[in-house]
């Protein structure tokens, strides 16, 4: 067996150079390194393999309550850009980048469209929205009859589906969220501006000399 003087970071199969990731995103090098501290916590919670699997992602989102959730699954699938069933560090940083306060609205709109277009047809269909509404009701105390669900869908589609073909295309979505900006609140995480103070231990593990930018 060979003996390698590798650091903990290089043992992570998806580890990417923070300088490179910072150049591709709204994050500074220090912020990418702070995100690595978060990534290590999540990716080591069940299997310490340097990758986040779906179970680890859900544990992190729901604070150690093991629960299956349609929406968390959907976010996971969008983070898992290589469709391997796991999220590596590069995937994690690039996906969180979309949620950075400094990222243009068009990118956030595009991500949210994909979030709701669950089967990837290029349209948000009424049946998908109904499925999501039912899933939401399943996770909350809210009880709504099928009639009320259909009324909510009628109202939503009369507002969003401009050509009334029963599905929302990208242009219709863009126009709808521009008129309803509160829908995009979930696409911005103010936390991403404070990650170096939330995870200060990155300083001890930094491989970059010049941390102060």
């Amino acid at each position: 067996m060979g003996c390698f003087a590798s650091t903990a970071k290089r043992q992570h199969p998806g580890y990417e150079d923070p300088v490179r990731l910072a150049s591709q995103t709204a994050f500074s090098v220090s912020e990418v390194e702070a995100l690595f501290e978060l990534f290590k916590n999540i990716s080591g919670s069940v299997i310490d393999d340097g990758l986040i699997n779906k179970e680890e992602f859900q544990l992190a989102l729901f604070k150690n309550q093991r629960k299956e959730n349609l929406f968390a699954n959907r976010i996971f699938d969008l983070f898992d850009v290589k469709k391997r069933g796991v999220i590596d560090f590069g995937d994690f940083v690039r996906a969180l980048n979309v949620f950075h306060p400094n990222i243009p609205m068009e990118e956030k709109n595009d991500f949210s469209f994909k979030l709701y277009d669950m089967d990837g047809t290029g349209f948000i269909e009424r049946k998908e929205v109904k499925q999501m509404l039912i899933a939401l009701l399943g996770e909350s105390e809210m009880r709504l009859s099928d009639e009320i669900i259909e009324t909510i869908l009628d109202k939503t589609f009369s507002d969003a589906d401009a050509n009334q073909d029963g599905k929302i295309d990208r242009a219709e979505w863009e126009s709808f969220v521009t008129r309803n900006p509160s829908l995009m609140k979930i696409m911005t995480l103010p936390y991403l501006k404070d990650i170096t103070t939330t995870f200060p231990s990155f300083v001890f593990n930094s491989e970059v000399d010049d941390l102060v930018t």
Partner: peptide, 25 residues
């Protein structure tokens, strides 16, 4: 509330979309 008739406003309240939880220790 008008939001209650907007399916996406309701759906976006799911905990599964609350990525802020990842940052809370």
């Amino acid at each position: 509330r008008p939001e209650s008739m907007n399916a996406f406003a309701l759906i976006s309240r799911s905990q599964g979309f609350n990525l802020g939880n990842l940052f809370e220790k």
